[in-house]
Computed example of a mutant assay.
Amino acid sequence: MSSKANKVNKALDEAIPLQNPIKLHESMRYSLLGGGKRVRPILCLAACELVGGDEANAIPIACAIEMIHTMSLIHDDLPCMDNDDLRRGQPTNHKVFGEETAILAGDALLALAFEHVASKSTNVSPDRVLRVIVELSSGIGSKGVVAGQIVDICSEGKEISLDELEYIHVHKTSKLLEAAIVCGAIMGGGDEIEVEKLRKYGRCIGLLFQVVDDILDVTKSSNELGKTAGKDMASNKATYPKLMGLERAKEFAIELVGKAMEELSYFDALRAAPLFRLAEYIAYRQN
C-alpha cells in the first residue's frame, strides 16, 4: 500500500501544479494532497494488475478517482451538508479557504478528473478509456454517489429500515469503490467474467468500508479518527450500529469480507493476494 500510495501521490502532485488562480489551486492541492489512505486508487491499480495489466496504464484513472473522492469530501464537509470542521486531522477545506472557494475547488477537481483520464491514458485503446469514463460517471451521478447523498440528507432525523440504509451506503460509499476496481480491471484488459467478479468484490468491500466507518464513529475518538467522532449520533443519522446493534454490525462486517473473498476465489490466489489483504485492511482499520 505504501509503494502504490507513493506513486499515486507523485502523480497527483504533478497533475495539479500551483498556478493561477493561486487560491483555487492551493485549495485543490490542500485537500487532494493532505493525507488520506489512497484506498480507491490502490484498489484500482491492484485490479489492473490482477487481470494482467500494466499499472502504468491505470495511473490516470486512479488519480481521477482520487480527485473525485476528494471533491466529495470537500462538499460533504460544507455547512449545508455534514457541517464538519475536521478532515484527516486537519481543518476542513471551507474552514481554511472559505465556503465559496471550497465549492469551486470541488467543482474544479471533478472537471479535472475527466480531463485527466481522457488526456493521460495514452497507452490504452480509446474503447477502454470510454468505458471507464462511462463507469465513473455512472458511479458518481444521480445513480451513484449523488443519489446516496441526497437520500442520506433527506433521511436525517427519520426512522429508516436496514434496506433504506443499505441503499444510502451502497450509493454514497460503495459505488465509487466499485467503480475504482472495475475501472482498473477494464484498463488492465480484463474479460467480461473477470470484470463482473471484481465488480461484486468491490460492492462488498464498498459496503464494508461504510459499516466499519459507522463502527469506528462510535468506538473511537476524534484524535484517533482524524475527523469528528460521534458526528452521526449527534445528527441523529441512521447507522449500522444504531439499527443492528454494535456487535451485529461487527458480525455483518465479517460476513461482507467473506463474500468479497468468495468473488476473488475465481482468480489465481497469488495474484489476488493484494486484494485479499486490502479487504482485510478495510475490515480491521482503526481510522
Rank of each mutant, 00 (worst) to 15 (best):
R131W: 04
V132A: 00
V132F: 01
V132T: 02
I133L: 03
I133H: 01
V134T: 04
E135L: 01
L136Y: 00
L136W: 00
S138I: 00
S138K: 07
G139C: 01
G141R: 04
G141D: 02
K143E: 01
V146R: 02
V146C: 02
A147K: 14
Q149R: 03
Q149F: 11
V151W: 01
V151I: 12
C154G: 05
C154M: 15
G157R: 08
G157I: 06
K158E: 11
K158W: 02
K158Q: 14
E159H: 02
E159I: 05
E159Y: 02
S161V: 01
L162K: 13
L162R: 11
E164L: 02
E166N: 14
H169E: 14
H171I: 05
K172P: 10
S174A: 15
L176C: 06
L176H: 04
L176S: 05
L177H: 11
L177V: 15
E178V: 05
E178L: 12
V182P: 06
C183S: 11
G184V: 06
G184H: 08
A185G: 07
A185T: 08
I186Q: 01
M187I: 12
M187T: 05
E192P: 04
E192I: 10
E192A: 15
V195W: 03
E196W: 03
K197G: 04
K197R: 15
K197T: 03
L198G: 12
L198Y: 15
Y201N: 09
Y201R: 03
Y201T: 08
G202P: 05
G202V: 10
C204S: 12
G206A: 07
L207A: 06
L207R: 14
L208K: 11
L208G: 10
L208N: 12
L208T: 11
Q210W: 07
V211G: 08
V211R: 06
V212C: 12
D217Y: 09
D217V: 13
V218N: 05
V218Y: 04
K220Y: 04
S221A: 05
S222H: 13
S222N: 11
N223L: 14
N223K: 15
E224H: 10
L225W: 14
L225T: 09
L225A: 05
G226L: 03
G226H: 12
G226C: 10
K227G: 12
A229G: 13
G230I: 07
M233H: 07
M233D: 09
A234C: 03
A234S: 15
N236V: 04
N236S: 11
A238E: 05
A238I: 06
K242A: 15
